[in-house]
């Protein structure tokens, strides 16, 4: 028996390529959902707006969109760094700062939805 070993590449390319497209579709769907919900709400005031976000389905949909957004933003921003930021140290610092910011945004989103 021989083991096929692949000795080149980091092997996150296809996964990230697919993640970028799946998350894009989730974000497009959420955009249409939110747009539809707003358009079909008469008298959009605090009560109807907060009421919409107090439902379980809207919280689930919003959190799914936030997760898709975080992942999508990570892949996209990392690609920009890989193209333009050559010094490894600088790139690492930017990547870590980006990951920290994105996870922070996700936590913030949970807190916002938690309170509604």
């Amino acid at each position: 028996m021989t083991t096929r070993r692949i000795v080149v590449g980091a092997h996150y390319g296809l996964r990230d390529w697919l993640a970028q497209r799946v998350s894009a579709v989730v974000l497009l769907a959420y955009t249409l959902l939110l747009l539809g919900a707003v358009l079909f709400t008469r008298d959009l005031d605090y009560g109807s707006w907060a009421g919409m976000f107090s439902t379980v389905w809207m919280k689930v949909a919003t959190l799914l969109a936030v997760l898709a957004l975080i992942w999508h933003a990570w892949v996209g921003v990392r690609d920009i760094y890989m193209d333009y930021i050559k010094p490894t140290g600088v790139r690492l610092v930017l990547q870590v700062a980006t990951v920290v910011a994105l996870i922070g945004y996700a936590i913030w989103a949970v807190i916002i939805l938690w309170r509604v």
Partner: peptide, 25 residues
Amino acid sequence: RISGAVLFLLGIPFALYLLQESLTS
């Protein structure tokens, strides 16, 4: 690419801030 960078740098924090202000009270 440019719009993606703008959405990351400005869009996400601004949208979350607006969401927070619009939903809290």
